[in-house]
Computed example of a mutant assay.
Amino acid sequence: MFTRVCKAETVPEGGMRLVIVDARLIILACPEGGDDLRAFQGVCPHSNSPLSEADFDGRVLTCPVHGWTWDLTSGAPIEPQESALAEYPVKVEDGSVYIDVEGVVPLFAAP
């Protein structure tokens, strides 16, 4: 079930914002060079820390706790190659962004 989270214009190309859907923290990003919004888990797979203070350079997300990085065009890990970020389905209708969290669980690195 898709839930409305914000207006699409609030996430410019190269930008990101955090939203909450069904008590899940989610990163909503529009990577540079891409034309689609992407939604990923908003907690680090390493430390389960919120990524609310993460750095985003338009493509790479960097965790503020230990410096882990991910490519937000895909959610794939860059350094270390430990764990991807879970991705949620996103759709934009009439200028509003909707995210579906059903059946998607955050990914975590092996202990």
Rank of each mutant, 00 (worst) to 15 (best):
V5D: 13
C6V: 08
K7G: 15
E9V: 15
P12I: 07
L18P: 05
L18I: 10
L18K: 06
V19P: 12
I20G: 01
I20N: 14
V21P: 07
D22A: 08
A23V: 04
A23F: 08
R24L: 13
I26W: 07
L28K: 14
A29W: 06
C30N: 13
P31F: 00
P31V: 02
P31T: 04
G33M: 03
D36L: 07
L37S: 06
A39I: 10
Q41D: 09
Q41W: 07
Q41K: 09
C44S: 12
P50E: 10
E53T: 13
E53F: 14
D55P: 04
R59S: 04
V60D: 00
V60E: 05
L61N: 07
L61D: 02
P64M: 10
G67P: 13
W70L: 00
L72I: 00
T73M: 10
T73C: 06
S74T: 15
A76P: 05
A76C: 03
P77D: 00
P80V: 02
A84E: 15
A86D: 01
V90C: 13
K91M: 10
G95C: 05
S96P: 10
V97E: 12
Y98C: 11
V101W: 06
G103L: 06
V104N: 07
L107C: 08
P111Y: 05
